[in-house]
Design a protein around this nucleic acid. Structure first.
Lengths: 210, 210
DNA sequence: AAAGTACGGTACGATATCGTACACGTCAAG
DNA sequence: CTTGACGTGTACGATATCGTACCGTACTTT
């Protein structure tokens, strides 16, 4: 039994990984509709029998692909650390957010989820909650603390968080998703820093009496 | 039945319109891949011959659908009028923008364009230029004037415009596109007004030395 | 060594789609 | 009345896809 878990499942597991990698490439490149199981098969090699042994049907394979890419692509979204000042936290949060969005996986995942949202409602919800939703929640929690301490003047922290992240995103993300243009690092950094400055000045507590 | 010279040419045009309407419904609901010509046909009635007479193939029909929906959905994006103050202009621009994005046509068009961007690069580019790109250009031009007059302190007007519109969009749009939740008017209005206030305060010309 | 299991390659059934072709009916014009 | 253009319905060819079935092979365990 012990040696079994080393040899036998390992081959199966490696095969499964290989299938997942090939399927990821094809599904994200061509979309669920245009991608075919035979295409995956011809890339990974092997027979249909083993393919359908690991994943009972096309939908299951797609779900596995999305789950893996999601966890990989969205891992960089972390809550801002309490240390450091507001500017530093916003810079880091904005940079991480944009890097995730503009990463190859991020762009492909975004397109795939929007395309297949009607047919994979559960996946779409999980993608939102684990991606943009989580990021904005992290930031909103952060804002709530600062608001309680009077460091920032924010009416609704949740809305403010989404707005800051939306400002950081700008149109750069959509342009990249549509393939209209690929943003330069320079423009991205300029965008982030300008968003941070505008936001900080926009939420700075004014004079108390006014 | 009634008039002679009126029926024949008009019938062809009406038929074409009927096909377009049915195709719009089906293409935007099911996506280019899942929609079929037979499906369009069974809804509009008639024969394949006339369908392919009006539109030589599936791609041409899709392009016609997108062109029509685009011009209809994006028409509400207008440049802000020079009259009134900054707050009023931002409120109107933000409201129009969000209304376009969250309208049924806007949501469906957004999903369709992102889904098919790789296979319809020209359409994707035109969508971006006529939609988000145009809106941000309008606002950027507006900002440039105000910046020249010293009314606002904006480093890069184009970036600032995209950021304001991005802030207005927030996560509400993405959530709606993904079908995660449909936003209430109340939340949308609160989002817009908060974005306007933050932006105005964030771009107000401060003391020169600081 | 024997046996069971995972795997490979391919053929197959069922279905769906795009675009064309063919036969027929309707209606205005010469 | 003949004729030609246009619309309808349906059949068809070519192709593609999903998932199953069959059969032979290599490898692991007992």
């Amino acid at each position: 039994m012990t040696s079994i878990s080393d040899t036998q499942p390992r081959r199966g597991w490696e095969k499964r990984e290989a299938i997942l990698i090939a399927a990821t490439e094809i599904f994200l490149r061509d979309g669920y509709g245009r991608a075919s199981m035979d295409q995956v098969l011809s890339r990974v090699g092997g027979s249909k029998r083993t393919l359908y042994k690991h994943f009972p049907n096309k939908e299951a394979l797609f779900e596995a692909v999305i789950a893996k890419v999601s966890s990989r692509a969205l891992a960089a979204l972390e809550p801002p650390s309490g240390e450091g000042d507001l500017r530093r936290a916003l810079l880091k949060m904005g940079t991480d957010y944009v890097n995730v969005l503009l990463s190859p996986d991020g762009l492909l995942l975004y397109r795939a989820m929007i395309s297949e949202a009607p047919h994979f409602a559960k996946l779409a919800r999980r993608f939102f909650e684990d991606g943009p939703g989580r990021a904005s929640r992290y930031l909103a929690d952060y804002f709530r603390e600062y608001k309680a301490n009077g460091i920032v003047d924010i009416s609704d922290p949740q809305i403010a968080a989404e707005q800051f992240l939306g400002a950081v995103r700008g149109d750069v993300h959509l342009a990249a998703v549509l393939g209209v243009r690929t943003p330069s690092m320079q423009l991205v950094n300029a965008t982030i820093s300008q968003a941070v400055e505008t936001f900080i000045r926009g939420t700075a507590p004014g004079k108390v009496g006014e």
